[in-house]
Structures are given as C-alpha cells and as structure tokens.
Amino acid sequence: MFRSVFRAAPSLTRVSGLRSGFVKPTFSSASRFYASSSLSKEEITTRIADVIKSFDKTASATSITANTQFSKDLGLDSLDTVELLVSIEEEFDIEFPDKVADELKSVGETVEYIASSPEAN
C-alpha cells in the first residue's frame, strides 16, 4: 500500500539534490531597496513647490526655485513659515527638529535637509 510512496521518496531527494547543485543563489545580486533617501533633489523641489502653491497665504505665485526665501520672496511672517514647514514635514513624513527648523530660511536649505534625512519619502 505504501510502496509507491516509499519508492517516490528517494527519487524526490535525488531531484532536489540535483537542483541544489545547479541553481545558484540569486538573492545576493538583488538590489537593496532600503538604501538611504531615494528622492532626487529635483523631485523634492517640485514637491515642495506644489506644497507652497497650495498654501493660500503666499504672496506671489512666481516660480519657485532653490533660492526662494520664505520671508522675502513669499512674504510669510515667522508664524506662517512655521505653518509651511509643518506642511512640508507632513508631505515628506518627517519631523524637523526645532533647531533645524529655525535655520531653514529658503527652499534650497529645506531641500538639502530633506535629501540628507533617510526617513523622507
């Protein structure tokens, strides 16, 4: 009754033995996707520009470049800047530490910081 099972078993092991001899481990060549910050600077800039455009307190709708200053070019006071930074934090799912947030005065600096932080996405 069990003969067929017993007979099948050694042939199975033989097959699997063969296979392990031939197949090379492929996982070593697979790329690692969790490397630090996959965002390019252009992408970050465009996303920040989108956020700024949908922020209704900005003074002018001029094109936003890395040199755009929050207070001078966008006409934001310090509280509005804080609000904008909170929105940018939410967009990239990160949190600026208070010390860093005080230093961020322009789009370029913000882009730099986001590009250097690994958790941003």
């Binding site: 310090s78 509280l79 804080v82 609000e83 909170v86 934090e89 939410e90 005080d102």
Partner: peptide, 22 residues
Amino acid sequence: MSELTLSTYKSLLRSLVRSAKH
C-alpha cells in the same frame, strides 16, 4: 517673535494636521 510662541504654534498645528488626516 519669542521661541516659545513659535514652538507652541508649531506643535499645535502639527497635532491638528495629523489628527485630522485620518
């Protein structure tokens, strides 16, 4: 603007935005 004012405003906004998101 004092530091406390700014950080208060920031934490308030952050909490409200996050809790409203869902």
